[in-house]
Design a binder for these strands. Structure first.
Lengths: 226, 226
DNA sequence: CAATAATTTATTGTATACAAAAATGTTGAC
DNA sequence: GTCAACATTTTTGTATACAATAAATTATTG
């Protein structure tokens, strides 16, 4: 049960149902899931270890809130790690995975043409997940997954306002370039294209976040209060 | 209290008091720490998230046990991550940290001459910790720390049998070379020297583990039982 | 009326209780 | 003696109870 709760809570934070800074009241969550506080607490502890939640002694847990500097560093880290994955994947992707990668690019192409942001996002996730698993090293794979997970609460905000500003074709073209490099076995190119891609994602997100901030009022960033 | 327990348990696993495969009985631990099972459970969940402990539903938690393949992959991952840190540190180390690094090499030199394996190990830890913090990117730093932590239960086994086989001067010289590259601001050299260093550590550990295995009898590696 | 002190309420952290499942031990048949 | 079926004991997972601390509210005083 505790496992189920942490899965669901993760989902909610990643999907943006709970946003950075939101309180996680143990009793309310317990009621919501129709269990006692015990398994809820376990789930919260687990999410805190995953970096999705911040624990404050004797006070409610919050959905992890980063400062702008932290978010910037998170993306720098993600660039390095995703780049590492791309470089390994270029050398280790299985035949089945190579086929799936080609298929993904086709679907992504279509989603891009249709302007289907939701599917484009799904494809983005699967694209990166495929590369992660293509590394064929469980530890690098989990580091990459965990890193993306930590950033995802902020990425999610971008998708709440599915603004017209974001041009789906730019990330798609970058994906294509990365996929080509990987399929060609060019590790160095795959890495640097991936680093560039992550960097671009960061700039896009910054744009969306400042937009979201203007609309919502509440700051999504950690300030030096408390 | 729960925080204290997880800290102590981590310490015990890292120091080799509990070895991979050992059972973690909640009640015994609760008695040992003079608390109820509740905070002990929290600590165990936390350690499981950190990858130090493996949870099996309805059965006791175990100190994380890797297969030989997993350990190998873990070291491959560590090579990449430590290498990344070295490369960043070469460009970002503060003046205070540069001074500390020089001092460390001196102390290490002495410990090496005295054949003081314990201090040499402490210096090794501080050496890597210094490089991690020198990256000046909280996420890369934590990834590096967490990665080392996950491997440490196996590293610890090497130090239980402080055999005569290990030559303290080899890792020391590698540290010196890495430190020189970092102090010279040569990121590429720092990275490749670090990768080499981690690789060497792996070979040494394999040697020690097979030795330990012959003496203890019990397998430290995960087999395909259960 | 503002600001602070006292009191109440809400919420976390730990202990205990109990149910369910796994591990262990025992008996009996072959 | 070995194996299997049953009973017993451990041990986990969740619920509940309660104590301690923080937040909110009310009362009090200048």
């Amino acid at each position: 049960m505790a496992k189920e709760i942490s899965k669901q809570l993760t989902e909610m934070i990643v999907r943006g149902t709970y946003r950075p800074g939101d309180r996680l009241d143990e009793q309310s969550l317990a009621d919501q899931f129709s269990v006692s506080r015990t398994p809820v607490r376990e789930a919260i502890v687990k999410l805190a270890s995953a970096g999705l939640v911040q624990l404050r002694p004797r006070r409610s847990a919050l959905v992890r809130r980063m400062s702008e500097a932290e978010l910037s560093e998170a993306f720098e880290a993600m660039g390095e790690i995703e780049g590492l994955c791309a470089s390994y994947a270029a050398q280790r992707l299985s035949e089945a995975q190579r086929l799936r990668l080609k298929a993904l690019m086709q679907i992504s192409e279509q989603a891009c043409r249709d302007g289907d942001a939701t599917q484009a996002q799904d494809m983005d996730n699967e694209f990166h997940e495929l590369i992660h698993s293509g590394v064929r090293n469980w530890m690098i794979t989990s580091v990459a997954r965990e890193t993306r997970l930590k950033v995802s609460p902020y990425s999610a905000i971008g998708f709440i306002f599915d603004s017209e500003v974001i041009d789906l074709s730019v990330p798609h073209k970058q994906h294509c370039a990365i996929a080509d490099a990987i399929l060609a076995g060019d590790a160095a190119a795959a890495r640097s294209l991936m680093v560039e891609h992550v960097g671009h994602n960061y700039l896009t997100l910054q744009e969306l976040l400042s937009q979201a901030q203007r609309h919502s009022g509440t700051s999504l960033f950690e300030n030096e209060e408390d």
